[in-house]
Structure formats: structure tokens, C-alpha cells
């Protein structure tokens, strides 16, 4: 899945130097490499795809091969400062489970996902076809995505799960969308915490 620098920069701004960071579905490890260089994080990636695992090893990134669908058993509570899942939540079946796990092992979670309610996607559906776009580059029959949700859907899940949204940024084509994000933004990034965990 493609990754954009604006995504990196937002995440880096949410991270203090020297933090412990866990990147779930870390791909080739390029985000962790970026965070190591600009924030000197102690980073670990989780990846279950053999090719991407190999890419991480080549990139010199710490990578741990486990199936996230099974949760993060083995990771201590609160060990990480930030647990990141970038553009992968929509490909996870156990959505609530992984969000709980992220906020169990991390002080904060950072989540980004493609907004299925983006206006171009709506237009595509109105025209009778499933959306295919830069952020949803797959056909309906070969997509790795298994959960199709919107910014409003995610806000409502967080409310139901007792997850505090500390910050939310929405984008279209690298530009910040402030108003009508659920209509105008193609990607959203969240900084999340457990309810009753102080301010951050």
C-alpha cells in the first residue's frame, strides 16, 4: 500500500525523540526508518508477509513476524509510547480487538485509514461501481481490505469503545481538510488514547 510523506510528517509530529514505537503492518519498514532518523525512536515493526519482512531486514529495521489477527499476546502492557497502524486497519478482521491491543501495549495509538465516504468514492457508488482510487487501488475481487468504513463510522466506534480521540487530521491529496472531512477527505489520521488515561 502506498505511503505518502505527509502521513510520515504528521506521525513524526506526534512522537517525542527517543520514544518506543511499534508499527503494526510496517511494510518495508520505511516509516520506522524515517522515525528513527527524525525522532531517534526505538522502533519495532510487525509484519506477517514474507516479502515485506525481507524488505525490513534489508532496510535494517527491527521486524517481528507475527499474525496481528491473533492479537499482541507477548507484548507487555504499556511498553510502547506509540503503537502505529498506518493504512492497515481496513485490512484487519478483528478491528475492535486490535484497537484494544494497541491501546493495551501503547500509551497512545496512531491509526490512519482510507475514508470510504470520500466524495469520489460516493460518486463511484452512485455510478454503480465500487470505488477504485489512489487510496483504494484494488478491484473488489482482489482487495486485501475486509472492513469498509468512514471517518464518521470510526468516530462512532471510538465513542462506543471508550477510546479518546486526542487529535484527528484528514487529508485529500496531501492537503489538510478541515470542514466536511467525511465528505472531502480521502485519508484520515488519528491519535488515540484509552479513556481516563490523562491528557497527552
Amino acid at each position: 500500500m502506498s505511503f505518502h510523506r505527509f502521513d510520515y510528517d504528521v506521525i513524526a509530529n506526534w512522537i517525542e525523540p527517543g520514544e518506543r514505537v511499534l508499527d503494526l503492518g510496517c511494510g518495508d519498514g520505511s516509516l520506522l526508518r524515517y522515525l528513527s532518523s527524525v525522532r531517534q525512536v526505538r522502533g519495532y515493526g510487525v509484519e506477517n508477509d514474507p516479502e515485506r519482512l525481507l524488505a525490513c531486514a534489508r532496510n535494517g529495521v527491527n521486524v517481528i513476524q507475527i499474525d496481528m489477527e491473533q492479537g499482541l499476546a507477548g507484548f507487555d502492557d504499556g511498553f510502547f509510547d506509540h503503537v502505529i497502524m498506518s493504512l492497515s486497519l481496513q485490512a484487519m478482521r478483528n478491528t475492535q480487538g486490535i484497537l484494544r491491543e494497541m491501546l493495551r501495549v501503547g500509551r497512545e495509538a496512531v491509526v490512519s485509514f482510507p475514508n470510504f465516504a470520500y466524495w469520489r468514492h460516493r460518486q463511484s457508488i452512485l455510478n454503480g461501481r465500487m470505488p477504485v482510487s489512489k487510496n483504494l487501488p484494488y478491484q473488489w475481487y482482489d482487495t486485501p481490505n475486509v472492513r469498509f468504513f468512514t471517518i464518521d463510522d470510526f468516530d462512532s466506534l471510538c465513542a462506543g469503545e471508550g477510546i479518546v480521540i486526542r487529535e484527528r487530521l484528514a487529508f485529500d491529496d496531501g492537503k489538510v481538510i478541515v470542514d466536511e472531512a467525511n465528505f472531502l477527505a480521502s485519508v484520515a489520521l488519528y491519535r488515540l488514547a484509552r479513556a481516563g488515561c490523562g491528557t497527552g
Partner: peptide
């Protein structure tokens, strides 16, 4: 990992 060592696992 919990000892803050750099580690990769395949």
C-alpha cells in the same frame, strides 16, 4: 524487545 534490544524475528 522488553529489554530494549534490537531484535528481528522471522
Amino acid at each position: 524487545m522488553h529489554s530494549d534490544r534490537r531484535v528481528s524475528y522471522a
